[in-house]
């Protein structure tokens, strides 16, 4: 019965593009953040050539890419297609009344979100390269490995965000848990501060968490912090988190369907 389900991936980009102000806002935030962080890192490197094994060019590249990956993804959430918002407006019922399961629908919607945020990252990367903020990849292998890692990171981030969102089936409101997640994500993903600045034992733990798999791993590969020869381990960690989180979210979806609350009359 279900036909061109893959076309559900166009919903999120289409919704974003319907609003010119949202596109302009995202562009403004991305450009401003990239330039501000680049200036910050340049200031930090004003009196030193190298910190923790990275020179200023690598550090600015890292910062620019990490900012792009985080901001582009955060801004796509404005479309509001989440369990939380749909439970609050009562239209979550329709997710369970169509011949595409809620889980599958949300996954295809997520593919669209990922493509949309990736387009922003690609545009930002191109701009960064032109402005000299981002160093080109050291080799074709680095480019390929960081692209694969970025893709895996998107999957990990999709599942993490989804897990937090699915909590709404039990709590209706997810304000608190979302705030906590965003705090942890910002701190432990390497988006604000590269994880190698953390104390040794803590860094060893944090780099193996799913938060790092979303941002730190792909950007570290691109910036040269992780050499292609040593990429297998971090990539395996990413794949591992993809599998673990996929199993976990599938289990939560199954329980969520039986917990459905349609607010109001």
């Amino acid at each position: 019965m279900t036909g061109a389900v893959h076309r559900l991936a166009r919903i999120a980009p289409l919704a974003e593009c319907m609003r010119g102000t949202r596109l302009a806002t995202t562009g403004f935030v991305v450009v401003t953040q990239v330039l501000l962080y680049a200036e910050l890192w340049r200031a930090l490197y004003a009196h030193t050539a190298e910190v923790a094994g990275l020179d200023v060019r690598q550090a600015v590249s890292y910062s620019t890419l990490a900012t792009l990956a985080t901001t582009a993804r955060a801004m796509r959430g404005a479309t509001g297609e989440s369990v939380k918002t749909r439970i609050l407006d009562g239209s979550i019922a329709y997710w369970f009344l169509r011949p595409v399961s809620a889980r599958r629908y949300r996954a295809w919607y997520g593919v669209g979100e990922a493509l949309y945020s990736s387009a922003w990252v690609a545009a930002g990367l191109a701009l960064g390269l032109v402005l000299g903020l981002v160093a080109p990849p050291a080799s074709a292998a680095v480019a390929a490995l960081s692209a694969v890692s970025f893709g895996l990171g998107l999957v990990v981030l999709y599942y993490l965000t989804l897990l937090i969102d699915l909590v709404a089936f039990w709590t209706v409101s997810t304000e608190g848990v979302t705030r906590f997640y965003e705090f942890v994500q910002a701190l432990l993903s390497g988006a604000l501060i590269p994880l190698w600045f953390l104390p040794g034992p803590l860094a060893a733990v944090v780099t193996r968490l799913p938060f790092a798999a979303g941002v730190s791993t792909p950007v570290s590969l691109y910036a040269g912090r992780i050499a292609p020869a040593g990429a297998a381990g971090p990539l395996a960690v990413q794949v591992g988190w993809c599998l673990v989180l996929a199993v976990l979210t599938a289990a939560v979806w199954r329980r969520a369907g039986r917990r459905l609350v349609v607010l109001g009359g």
Partner: peptide
């Protein structure tokens, strides 16, 4: 199914786009 004032249309899309999405879902 219709549920009173709860819409199944995609809020940011044109109504025509929502019908297109349902066409894809129902094949």
């Amino acid at each position: 199914v219709t549920f009173g004032q709860r819409t199944q249309l995609w809020w940011d899309l044109r109504a025509r786009d929502s019908f297109g999405i349902l066409r894809d879902m129902y094949g």
